[in-house]
Design a binder for these strands. Structure first.
Length: 796
RNA sequence: GGGGAUGUGGCGGAAUAGGUAGACGCAUCGGACUUAAAAUCCGGUGAUGGAAACAUCGUAAGGGUUCAAGUCCCUUCAUCCCCACCA
């Protein structure tokens, strides 16, 4: 007989819902808290994919264990529901995106429930819900008041096809992340958030959180802190001057030319008559280049001479000023001093245009790798010094003469915070008299999206610009016009985890005392694709809200895990390219059951690794669950008397499974449960207590089956809050263990002995062991190593 | 170009305070049950040689440290991910 998973799973899902089994009273501070968070999904039209249940099952397992251990567990779910697909649906059909979104959310909600996750659905949030985005707008207002949100003229990533501006992390290789449309750079007035102001805090915060080192490193690289100096260069025969940023001011004596970005404001002013045409031509050439071409670092350096010369501030030498697109306006000061002897890019440029190369550090120039050792030459007061010494000497020199100053630069850019779209949070700002930006009053929030006839973008303007009634307002008798851009998708997701704690609060984004109790999130699981986007933005908002006294902790996510990707059976990412290898979790649940899918995905391999799908593995998981079910439900072997035969394996299993779940080593936890069941099958009688405790552990992985079997044996209402089993350390000591004899490190024999045997006794047993006699006969024993309870190594 | 990670049977993967490599599962082979098949239960299964006992080899490749290396160190190769002319 095999168990009917459809019947059992339906039965328990209904039971949990009816009895609100997983409702969390957030005000109950009597128990220790545990807050486990999943990255909430974007409710697309196609429903869950095979990757969703992976991370979600992992958090569910740990939550179920924590509940049994007596924690007050917060395990919520919600929906990141603003976004492009719903908007495109609205454009195509003329229907409001909200109904489409709600329909998709309903599908997702049903699928998530079907998988047996122990979410507290009373905490559900949705970012497109006005009662939620009221607070997204409120945070924006706070940022505006703190001068961290502002509207500035800046170069942006403009996507013509989508009719909107995109953030840097939404652009991949010069194409839009969504839709893969070309993206160009364009100057526009934009709402931005000054995330750079938090660069240092975001770097420091990384030190105190338990995140994968690779993710921390990615964030560090994205922030890209570099220490150096600003150096002022005067233009010869001119009143003009410009600044360069350099991390190696110590090489100033080796600067043989300067390079400005083609868009640098000074270019037109300083270019001499003779070079005007060439410069103009080059500027056009550079502006037409797509990001892809500009990113191709293998290409030849290009550039033109401006005819102007700069004066090297340390030795008054005249050095030519060039322009080239390898210098970016958006980083540093948009100008560099070129030291071809010690910088690869400058070297290539100098070689291409036959410019001077003057080494200032001893060593082999051609390798370009000599800049860290060797003493300084050709550098007057730096001669004979080493790097660190030379850097401080040069900075001191520049500072004393007001020729420059130390400076820290970040690669991180402003977070572009506006999209010319409809389906996002309206930015709660009014432009009054065409000059001054005024935010809405708190009592006027949320600013709700108006209904439109047509959701298409108009001439690169947000669809909202057509809502004339909504658009025009009057403030204190002055004419005002609302901002028509909306916030990006990353807005709501930057703080949603705070709202779960207090989702219905109408007076604050969440009650401070509740936040104080529940934060930080103890465990956050989600895909590695969010390593720098969402995870950096969410940290920044949280740091900001901490500074505002709204949130009690600096870092929101104490521990972070990335689940790996579930690949198709062909070992390639599931997707449009190989539709025949795409797995629909719905189908798996219907055919094999949610418990099977959960067990299978957890048993596939380490949570963090990418793993290929295997249908036979699903089948095997199902068979194993049936094997457990048969043992418990059919075989009349359970007794109330312990014959102690399973003592060791049972206690070891409890220990191993408990520890493995803590470390999210879920594949090995399942493997140990399999070993336990295999042992049980070898017994005539099984101590019922052991099986009951085994079911508790299994119920974290396969909750429906767990409930069913536990209910069958005990008549308890639910297993969800039964105490987690403990193990008896004394039962883990075996009376007899296998000890290995090695000769020169090679396995030559084994014997059984007590783990507590004295070293000398062990040595004697080993030396007398028959299978090693031929190896030691007539040889001098030089040394013996005894590793208690494991190995004896004889060196001859 | 920079950063990060990974590399173990036919397959997914176990094993790190250095101490029996290949747990567990898949696949496969055999046995039991069956008229038969499926399902189930039990057992074998890294490679090579051998009837067997056993021997030799074996964790991407090469070197090293050590009584002992999948694990530590050096060099090389391959794959994947992220960033990328960041001065």
């Amino acid at each position: 007989m095999s168990y009917n998973h459809l019947e059992i799973e339906k039965k328990w899902q209904e039971y949990w819902q009816k009895h609100q089994t997983f409702y969390t009273d957030v005000h109950d501070f009597s128990k220790p808290k545990y807050y486990a968070l999943d990255m909430f999904p974007y409710p697309s039209g196609v429903g869950l994919h095979a990757g969703h249940p992976e991370g979600y099952t992992a958090t569910d397992i740990i939550c179920r264990k924590k509940r049994m251990e007596g924690y007050n567990v917060l395990h919520p779910m919600g929906f990141d529901s603003f976004g492009l697909p719903a908007e495109q649906y609205a454009i195509a059909t003329g229907n409001h995106p909200a109904s489409f979104t709600e329909k998709n959310i309903e599908t997702f909600r049903q699928q998530l429930k079907m998988l047996g996750f122990s979410y507290d659905w009373s905490k559900e949030i949705s970012t497109c819900d006005p009662s939620f985005y009221k607070w997204t707008q409120w945070i924006f207002k706070k940022l505006f008041e703190a001068n961290l949100a502002k509207c500035i003229e800046m170069p942006v990533n403009w996507c013509e096809a989508l009719g909107t501006v995109l953030a840097n992390d939404e652009v991949i290789d010069g194409k839009s992340e969504r839709g893969n449309h070309p993206v160009v750079r364009k100057m526009m007035k934009q709402w931005v958030i000054d995330i750079v102001a938090y660069a240092e805090k975001l770097l420091e915060g990384l030190e105190e959180i338990d995140w994968p080192e690779s993710t921390k490193e990615m964030q560090r690289n994205w922030i890209g802190k570099s220490q150096g100096a600003i150096i002022h260069f005067k233009v010869n025969n001119s009143v003009e001057q410009f600044d360069v940023f350099s991390t190696r001011p110590d090489t100033l004596f080796g600067a043989t030319f300067c390079v400005l970005a083609p868009e640098h404001p000074l270019v037109d002013t300083i270019t001499t008559q003779e070079y005007r045409d060439a410069v103009k031509e080059y500027k056009e050439y550079a502006s037409l280049k797509s990001d892809i071409e500009r990113n191709d670092t293998t290409k030849e350096k290009t550039g033109v001479f401006t005819g102007a010369y700069a004066i090297n501030p340390v030795n008054q030498k005249l050095i030519p000023i060039w322009i080239s697109d390898y210098v970016l306006l958006s980083y540093g000061s948009g100008a560099v001093m070129a030291v071809p002897a010690h910088d690869q890019r400058d070297y290539e440029f100098a070689k291409t245009f036959h410019l001077d190369i003057i080494p200032v550090i001893e060593g082999d120039i051609s390798t370009q790798a000599n800049s860290n050792d060797g003493v300084y030459i050709n550098s007057e007061f730096l001669n004979g010094m080493h790097k660190e010494q030379a850097i401080s000497a040069m900075i001191e020199y520049l500072q004393q003469r007001k020729l420059g100053y130390p400076k820290v630069n970040y690669r991180l850019r402003e977070w572009i915070f506006a999209r010319q779209r409809y389906w996002g949070e309206p930015i709660p700002v009014i432009l009054v008299d065409g000059r001054e930006y005024v935010t809405l009053k708190d009592e006027d929030l949320p600013l709700i999206l108006p209904e439109l006839k047509d959701y298409s973008p108009l001439n690169g303007q947000s669809p909202l610009s057509q809502a004339s009634q909504w658009l025009h307002v009057s403030i204190d008798g002055k004419k005002g016009i609302r901002e028509t851009s909306t916030m990006p998708g990353s807005a709501g997701s930057s703080w949603y985890f705070l709202r779960y704690i207090d989702p219905n609060n109408e007076h604050a984004l969440a009650d401070y005392d509740l936040l104080k109790h529940w934060l930080p999130v103890d465990l956050y699981i989600g895909g590695p694709e969010h390593a720098v986007g969402h995870l950096l933005y969410a940290r920044m908002w949280n740091h900001f809200l901490y500074d505002q006294g709204v949130v009690p902790v600096k870092e929101p996510f104490k521990k972070l895990i990335h689940q790996g990707m579930i690949l198709g059976a062909n070992g390639i990412k599931m997707g449009k390219r190989f539709p025949e290898f795409v797995v629909d979790p719905n189908v798996i649940v219907k055919e094999y059951g949610a418990d099977t899918l959960r067990i299978y995905e957890m048993f596939m391999g380490p949570l963090e690794a990418s793993k290929p799908w295997n249908d036979q593995g699903v089948e095997a998981s199902r068979k194993w669950l049936e094997r457990v079910y048969r043992l418990v439900m059919e075989m009349d072997k359970l007794t109330d008397e312990n014959d102690h035969k399973l003592d060791y394996i049972y206690n070891y299993t409890v220990k191993k499974v408990s520890e493995d779940i803590e470390q999210l080593s879920l594949n090995t936890a399942i493997s140990q449960m399999m070993i336990f069941i295999n042992e049980c099958y070898k017994q005539d009688k099984i101590y019922k207590e052991y099986i009951l405790n085994f079911i508790k552990m299994l119920s974290c992985f396969a909750p429906h089956l767990g409930e069913e079997m536990y209910h069958h044996l005990t008549n308890e209402a639910t297993i969800a809050y039964q105490p987690w089993p403990e193990y008896d350390e004394s039962k883990l000591v075996l009376e007899e263990i296998e000890i290995v004899i090695q000769i020169n490190g090679k396995l030559r024999g084994k014997f059984k002995g007590s783990p507590n045997e004295q070293e000398d006794t062990l040595k004697q047993i080993a030396l007398q062991h028959p299978s090693i006699q031929s190896y030691i006969e007539g040889k001098e024993i030089k040394k013996m190593f005894v590793i208690k309870g494991r190995v004896i190594n004889i060196v001859v």
